[in-house]
Amino acid sequence: MNHHGQEPAPGVPPAGENLEYRVAHLRDRIAGGPLGELGARLEVRGETVLLTGTVPSAHTRDEICDLVAAELAGHQVHCDITVADSSSPDHAEDLA
């Protein structure tokens, strides 16, 4: 039986409301839009969206977290994005 073009099965949200697809498109926007940030990962964990990765500044981290929270209002967004450490190294590696 072909369900092409028909209403989704009972209990299945329309594709436009599907959290996984929304997160995938949001990730594309973060990577390709003004943020240009490929270092942030967005993953669906049940009803929560988890953000991880390392970005160059606290400003970028806040921009990403605010954007995701606004776009996915109603879902819990957990931001674990860290800011890159810009301190000098305390040792060198000897490649003897």
Binding site: A84, D85, S87, A92, E93, A96
Partner: peptide, 21 residues
Amino acid sequence: VRVRNVAQPVIGRAFHVYHLH
């Protein structure tokens, strides 16, 4: 040949230093 990924999020510093002989 030794390979080093020096992406800043990987090395966690402003740079890493390698001593080569």
